[in-house]
């Protein structure tokens, strides 16, 4: 599904974001990437759909090189990759429905999108996606009228309506409370298990990571220091990834 081949990233100011990453993620996996802030989690995730460019190496997504893709090819590959953000990144003034439909824009001609002409099938897809996150009744409310957890579920619906084969989630629960965190993570888990959509999720809280992941990748200063099934990710392993014993704020209390 995703393959990193010798991927490195050096920022213009000389700091190294990623160092020689070689990782292969299979279809249907629920991968959680953990590490301190600044370890390169976000850079790793955003290089998969090329919101960030890499300096070296190549990333293959669904059999195609996104690193080399240009123009329409790049848009095509991105169309298959959903993304969920820490701050939801919804258009707050638009309705929930329109936000979900915006996941479909990659499928249609530009002029149709300028006029806002979505086929009927898209609207049904959007409604189904909203049902899956249990929010059909909010379809015609404005996005800024919803709570944080609800907004995040709308952004999940957007990725679902997109019919993505792979969903990237960058700290999806970092701005949510424990209860909504559970709802959002449960949604992601159901989508992963029932629809077989591959998940790559960045998380700060290790108990959440352990509860939902099938595989954990640990990053430290841009390098992969751990990569294995969740059973192998012991407390000692985490201490090594974090470079120190675990602290209170790295445990959210959702798993208990």
């Amino acid at each position: 599904m995703i393959e990193f081949k010798n991927v490195s990233k050096v920022y213009p100011n000389g700091t190294r974001g990623l160092k020689n990453i070689n990782v292969k993620i299979e279809k249907g996996e629920f991968v959680v990437v953990v590490g301190l802030s600044g370890a390169g989690k976000s850079t790793l995730l955003r290089s998969i759909n090329r919101l960030h460019e890499v300096s070296d190496g190549e990333i293959i997504v669904g059999g195609k090189s996104i690193t080399k893709a240009q123009g329409t090819d790049l848009y095509r590959i991105r169309r298959d990759i959903g993304m969920i953000f820490q701050h939801f990144n919804l258009v707050k003034r638009s309705s929930v429905m329109r936000n979900v439909l915006s996941g479909r824009v990659g499928y249609h001609a530009t002029w149709k999108m300028v006029l806002g002409l979505f086929p009927k099938k898209d609207k049904e897809l959007a409604i189904q996606a909203l049902k899956r996150v249990n929010m059909p009744e909010k379809a015609y409310m404005r996005a800024d009228q919803l709570s944080g957890g609800q907004q995040q579920r709308v952004s999940i619906a957007r990725a679902l309506a997109q019919e993505a084969k792979l969903i990237l989630a960058d700290e999806p629960v970092a701005s949510l409370d424990p209860l909504t965190t559970k709802q959002v993570m449960d949604d992601l888990q159901h989508i992963n298990q029932e629809l077989g959509i591959t998940m790559v999720v960045n998380l700060h809280f290790i108990d959440v990571a352990r509860k939902y992941a099938t595989r954990i990748i640990g990053l430290k200063q841009g390098e992969v220091v751990f990569d294995g099934p969740v059973e192998n990710a012991t407390d000692e392993m985490f201490a090594e990834i974090y470079g120190r014993p675990l602290e209170e704020d790295e445990i959210m209390g959702v798993a208990r």
């Binding site: 429905m97 409604i127 049902k131 059909p136 009744e137 379809a139 015609y140």
Partner: peptide, 11 residues
């Protein structure tokens, strides 16, 4: 359930 779960789109 599918038909009742959805509010009508605004006019």
């Amino acid at each position: 359930n599918q038909t009742t779960g959805m509010p009508a789109p605004p006019k």
